[in-house]
Amino acid sequence: MEKERKPKNIFVQGPISPEKIANSIANHASKTDIGGHSIFLGQIRADQKQEGKVIAIDYTAYEEMALEKAFEIREAIFAKYPLTCMHIYHSLGEIKVGEICLFVFTSSKHRKAAMQACDESVERIKAELPIWGKEILDTEGNVWKVNT
């Protein structure tokens, strides 16, 4: 009997720590049917805007809807690619320049499936999840971020 998959909480309050990333990688060492992993780490950039320089992004989300959409994306990616594992974590709250705000980790028997699944997942997360980022500027102003 196949186990029923349920939406997982993808949200992390604050930045995604290097320890969380390292532990996630280490936890897969016992899964000996995996031959390749692909990891995407989204980091906050110090973009220069007309109004000032970005020093942080404050992320908010329509959490219930975002979790449902993330679940739909995850299920579609699992149906399309022969994955062993897939993990998605997205920050909420204020994330400073240089900190990690998105962590997508896919694993498969072969590298190509892991890489393609990771890439497609990131693109869909950026395009489809109801998550908003307000860029905090060094001039005490704020600008709503537009995903590109």
Rank of each mutant, 00 (worst) to 15 (best):
M1I: 11
E2A: 10
E2W: 06
K6S: 13
K8C: 08
I10F: 09
F11D: 11
V12G: 07
I16D: 06
S17A: 05
P18K: 04
E19R: 05
K20D: 14
I21L: 07
N23Q: 09
N23S: 14
N23A: 13
S24H: 09
S24L: 05
S24W: 00
I25Q: 12
I25T: 13
I25K: 13
I25C: 05
A26F: 04
A26I: 04
N27Y: 10
H28R: 15
S30C: 08
S30A: 06
T32D: 07
D33W: 15
D33T: 12
G35R: 09
L41W: 12
A46C: 04
Q48M: 01
K49P: 01
Q50R: 02
E51L: 00
E51Q: 06
G52R: 02
V54F: 01
V54H: 00
I55W: 11
A56N: 03
Y59N: 05
Y59Q: 05
Y59K: 01
A61E: 04
Y62W: 15
M65G: 05
A66K: 00
L67Y: 12
L67T: 10
A70C: 08
F71P: 00
I73S: 03
E75M: 11
I77Y: 06
I77A: 02
K80A: 15
K80L: 10
L83P: 13
L83A: 00
C85V: 09
H87Y: 12
H87F: 14
Y89P: 07
S91K: 09
L92H: 00
L92Y: 01
K96L: 06
G98L: 05
E99L: 06
C101Q: 12
C101M: 11
L102P: 07
L102G: 08
F105H: 15
T106I: 07
S107A: 10
S108E: 12
K109A: 15
K112F: 14
K112D: 15
A113F: 00
A113R: 05
Q116W: 11
C118D: 13
D119W: 09
D119V: 10
E120I: 09
S121A: 07
V122M: 09
E123W: 05
R124T: 04
I125W: 07
I125K: 10
I125Y: 06
E128R: 09
E128N: 13
P130E: 02
I131E: 06
I131Y: 11
W132T: 02
G133Y: 02
K134I: 05
I136T: 00
I136Y: 10
I136P: 01
V143I: 12
N147F: 14
T148M: 12
T148E: 15
